[in-house]
Amino acid sequence: MRVMVMVRATEASERGDPPSAALLAAMGRFNEELAKAGILLAADGLRPSSAGARVRFSGKARTVVDGPFAEAKELVAGFWLWQVRSLDEAIEWVRRCPNPFEQGESEIEIRPLFEAEDFAPDADAGGART
C-alpha cells in the first residue's frame, strides 16, 4: 500500500524560517533510511502558504483567494509518498522521524492512498494482502 505522509505547517514554517543545519542533517539521515528500506517513492517540501493560492468553488462560481491562509496547523508544509505494508509500518517510520520543528509542537499525518485493488470488483478474492 502507499501512504501520503504530510507534515503539518507551523507558525515558523509559515513565516518561512529556514530549518537549522542540525535538523537538515537529521532529516537527511531519515530520508536515507527510508530510501535504503526501499519505501521512499517521493518527497518534497512546500513553500509557505503566502506563496500559494486557493480557488474557492460555490456552485458554478469560482473565486481566487491569495495566500497566506490562517490556521497554520491545518496547512501542509511538506510530504512524503511511501510504499509500506501496513498503516502500522508507516506509523513506526513516522515515530522515527526527527521532529520537523525541533523543540516545537508539530504533527505528521498519514493517509493511505486508494489502490488498484480498491477498484477491483473481487478485491477480497485470491489472497491479496491488505
Binding site: A35, K36, G38, Q83, A125, G126, A128, R129
Partner: peptide, 26 residues
Amino acid sequence: SATAGDDWMRPALCEDALRLGRVLQG
C-alpha cells in the same frame, strides 16, 4: 500475472519485489 487460479493480480507481491529491488539499488 497470476499463473494459476482466478485472480489476475496479487499486487502485494509486486510491491515486495519492488521494495527488494530498491533495497538492492541502495
